[in-house]
Computed example of a mutant assay.
Amino acid sequence: MRPEIGLARPLLGPNDITRDTRDRVDILSQEVASGRSSDLGRALRSDFSEVSRLTHQMAHLDAMKISLSRAETWGEGLQLSLAGVETSLADLAQGLATGLFSASTPGIVPDVAEGALRDIAAFLNGTANDRALFGNGAGDHPIQDIDAVLSDVRGLAAGAVDYETYAADVDAYFAPGGPFETTRLTIGANEPVVFPVGDGRTVSFEVDAGSSELIQAVKQAALAAGLDDRGFALAPGSTAAIDIQSRMLSATAALPDLRGRIGAVEERVSDMASSLDDRRSETEIALGETIGIDRFEAASALQNEMARLESLYAITARRAQLRLTDYL
């Protein structure tokens, strides 16, 4: 053998006889892992109509799932805020029971009431994704200036000649169309947030800061908070004290019903989400069957290709050893 020929052959390099087999191994490995054919045209015989329909349905179901998830988050936010309002009223009721019927703690009622009023306003200003939960999804908080509300009510207390007048003035202040609704309450949208759930259906939570139950909660806390500036006497255990306590109990008792109505919507959303998961699973199975493969057949083919690849590597190794002798 002439030396120049032996020297030239390594420079040209051998053909990679394993490339096609390695590519086939990669394809089969992906198919075995996914259970789907890598060549949809071959698997579907170029009829993509069913795959298109199922894929579109999957996208539609995924969009519905996102909307339902947002509805679940919204409902949870409402419930957490209402639980806070309920707790604030319960704490206030306990403070009233101590302060209104004891001569030794005259200042406890307005102090506790002011704290409860501020807490209630904070809960009603709660947001989800920067949208006001009790403002029908608007960007502004429904109660933007609780200090102004407190100042208004204290002014009513200072100008009243007796408790009856004060209570009537507070009722008028918080009545529909009254100063609180027209100057202190901001509901940024007229309609509640609507969550589409497919098939032309929607769900919504019919509650905002202007709901009667929440107006009552704010009103009764404000009425008690304004007593610090009253211009009239308020004797422990008096008829006025009993009326304040009765009002507070009435406001507290209204909240569970409101939370129950929201809970009913949450249950509907949960049922829809569960049904949606079932539909998505069925669609995913149908799509898998349409573009799926026989895993056993694919695994057998993969095993054969792996054996072939090992043989080719062995051949390549022997050729490399033979080529080494060309230099010797």
Rank of each mutant, 00 (worst) to 15 (best):
S275Y: 08
G135T: 11
S104W: 05
R24T: 12
D16S: 10
V197T: 11
R2T: 13
Q220N: 12
R201Y: 06
F195N: 02
Q220F: 12
T316Y: 06
R42F: 00
L214M: 03
G135L: 03
T105E: 11
Y163V: 13
V109H: 03
I5D: 15
Q220I: 10
L12Y: 11
Q216R: 14
I5Y: 14
L133T: 05
V153K: 01
D243L: 02
Q79L: 04
I315R: 14
A175W: 03
L7S: 12
D271I: 12
A103C: 07
L156S: 08
A138R: 01
S69Y: 08
S102K: 14
N190F: 03
F232E: 05
S311L: 14
R184D: 09
S69C: 12
P196L: 04
L322K: 10
A222E: 07
N129I: 01
E76S: 15
E213H: 03
A103E: 14
E282G: 14
L328H: 04
I291S: 15
G84S: 11
E76C: 01
A254W: 00
S300R: 13
F101C: 09
G292C: 07
I285R: 15
Q144E: 14
A172E: 15
D229G: 11
T182F: 01
M58A: 13
R261M: 09
S81F: 04
Q79F: 00
L249G: 13
R319K: 08
K65Q: 15
S69Q: 13
V25P: 06
D23K: 06
G126A: 07
I293D: 06
P142R: 01
R22C: 08
R36L: 11
L302G: 02
P110G: 04
I17V: 12
L12E: 10
L28V: 12
I17G: 00
Q79E: 10
Q144Y: 00
L214A: 03
S250F: 09
I244M: 13
R295E: 13
P256M: 01
R261D: 15
A132M: 01
E267A: 10
G6K: 02
P110V: 05
H60P: 00
R53Q: 06
I291K: 12
A168N: 05
L82A: 02
S212V: 13
